[in-house]
Design a protein around this nucleic acid. Structure first.
Ligand SMILES: [Mn+2]
Ligand SMILES: [Mn+2]
Ligand SMILES: [Mn+2]
Ligand SMILES: [Mn+2]
Lengths: 231, 231
DNA sequence: GAAACTACTTAGTCTATGCTAATTATGAGA
DNA sequence: TCTCATAATTAGCATAGACTAAGTAGTTTC
């Protein structure tokens, strides 16, 4: 009778997968992810995060510096990017093939990402023609775990007079997403920055080529990630 | 400070949903589902089943007669049929739209059924044209919870000389399913029973209209559910 | 440099779900 | 009716993941 050896490589649980994704997003700018930020993103208590952080660092998925924060190990990063690939392919598949709108698709993908097989994800990716971006403009990591790192500027910070392409919309909030869609503010749109009010005021843009003007408040303008267009 | 009131109607967990489905299948012929049969189907231990049975009967999803077995309450039956609808629509969607074969599709649906929203299932059902049967010929319950009850006979029990339509294939085993598909034994096929060897021997059939003969061993013939065709 | 605020961790508890080992009920045969 | 095999249950324990309450470390502020 075996003394019950623990599986050294158990499959990741749903909770673990969501923690890794959140830690990836919080530490992608190079720094550490703070306990309280993780707690806020996942809507759990700080002690819950401390507990999970302990387990994740014991299994080698993250590195924990007490009172500083956590970072992903290469293994944790691979796992996180795998989940992000799943999430974004699911979002795109649901919008392209099942009529979802880009506001409602996030919640569905948030659950499905943990249940689909790699095989199903690759079938969806094929059906979509190996897409590079999800409905919100976010880059889809490759199956090998590579992800495009774009140098983008928030519309709220773009200099007046520059010409921009809207590339990513940095929110999952259905209400804001639907509003952006109504305003024509979806990835791929071209615009110029015509004016910005002082004291963190709104930004005025003009669509290219129509020239139609639009005023965008500061909070929303911070969600619109753009790329400067030469000339 | 509230003394923490428990949610009186928590969402069902993945485990609970799988238990209900299994209990539905085991008790669908009118009787009780036995603890050991539930345990075998779910590949868990008998004490685990006893424990779950206690909780499920406390929440009113099943009726438990100790040492006899369990049956679904109307509420439990509704929940089980909802899961079966999800499972079968998923199986059909994956085969029709994503190129799955009918052998591999069950495992994928077994996980996805717990993660999809009702909305997604209904979108899939629409894309499929409100289908009535899954890839294995099993009837898909309606969203309202009605399910077709067909009077079928196993090929192993069909009288020699009768003409039959193959309606359902009663296994999820990928190897057997692929074998059946190779042999042309898929739902909708017409055949006549030409011979049966004594002492639980194999059954010989002839396909209609081609007349091609085929010998089917007893164990496999018990998985092929058929309907007698008039004339 | 001490006080005070904030963020983080630790301690202790709870639920869901699984397990093994031990016990008990049921029904079939003798 | 008694015995025994089988099936089911109970007892006791483990793990994942959440929570609240309490304590501690780091950081500001005067
Ligand atoms: Mn998720
Ligand atoms: Mn997205
Ligand atoms: Mn299942
Ligand atoms: Mn099926």
């Amino acid at each position: 009778m075996q003394p019950t050896v623990r599986d050294p490589n158990p499959p990741l649980t749903r909770s673990v997968e969501d923690y890794l994704k959140v830690i990836y997003h919080l530490s992608s700018q190079g720094g550490f992810a703070a306990t309280s930020d993780i707690a806020a993103m996942l809507e759990v208590s700080s002690p819950s995060v401390s507990g999970m952080v302990k387990r994740l660092s014991e299994t080698g998925l993250i590195e924990h510096v007490p009172y500083r924060g956590v970072q992903l190990t290469p293994q944790g990063r691979r796992a996180a990017l795998r989940m992000i690939r799943r999430h974004r392919i699911l979002e795109l598949y649901l919008t392209q093939h099942l009529g979802y709108d880009w506001g409602g698709v996030h919640a569905e993908a948030e659950r499905l990402e943990h249940a689909v097989s790699d095989d199903l994800i690759e079938r969806m990716a094929s059906a979509l023609g190996q897409p590079q971006y999800d409905p919100h403009g976010d880059p889809i990591p490759t199956a090998a775990g590579d992800i495009e790192e774009a140098e983008l500027v928030a519309l709220a910070d773009a200099r007046v007079g520059t010409k921009l392409e809207l590339r990513q919309v940095g929110t999952q909030d259905p209400a804001r997403l639907r509003y952006f869609a109504e305003q024509g503010l979806t990835p791929g749109v071209l615009l110029t920055v015509s004016e910005r009010q002082p004291f963190d005021g709104p930004t005025t843009i003009a669509f290219v080529p129509s020239g139609d003007p639009r005023v965008v408040g500061r909070d929303l303008a911070r969600l619109l990630w753009c790329q400067e267009i030469g000339s």
